[in-house]
Amino acid sequence: MNLEQLKDTWQGQSEQLQNGINVNEQKLKAEQTKDSLKPVMNKRIVEAIFTLVIVILLWQYIVANFALTAPVVSAAILNVFAIINLAGNIGQIALIKQIDYAKPISEVQKQIFDIRQHNLVFTKLVALSLPFYGSYVFLGFDLLFGVDLYKGLDVGGIFALVLGGIAFLPAVIWFNRQLRFDNISTGWVSKMIESIGGQELLAAAKVMNTLHTNEESA
């Protein structure tokens, strides 16, 4: 039996299917509003509101304490990351609204992958902020204890802090470069992507990989 012969068998099903399947109209009508993208959209809206609140609070802090001090500079640095995250959330909301399943499969699957990799992008963003870990420390000390930790540091302490941040940089760049869909054949990358974005992200990454391989071999 070859594919051409199976084509006839496959097409022979059509009449059987037309006669052998009944459409449950009541169920069809009842289920029409259950869009699986709605919960994702709602989640992104909540995240966007939450991030917006953080951005506003950081701005308030900066304005209220405006001076060239370590906590204020830290708040400004963290605000940049918060704004990037907010932009990402807004982008996700727009992307979900744009999904049109009638478009070519490669285009739609790329959008689905972008939606599912939201948590992965967020993790990469948090990783990128790690070289600036001092910002979390300075701002945290000021907010919790009202102490400007930077003023209490001697030259050796400042040097250690800067050196620590610089030491993080290559590790973070390497880590973020590894977490790519076309690198899921690497065991730990696959596990990491799965634990951050779930099995659905891993499944979408596999589809992206196949599309990518197709493009390369074309």
């Binding site: 059987q16 299917l17 006669n19 052998g20 399947i21 009944n22 459409v23 449950n24 169920k27 069809l28 289920e31």
Partner: peptide, 9 residues
């Protein structure tokens, strides 16, 4: 189910 398959099919 939305699509109900009869026994013959």
């Amino acid at each position: 189910d939305i699509l109900q398959v009869n026994e013959d099919l």
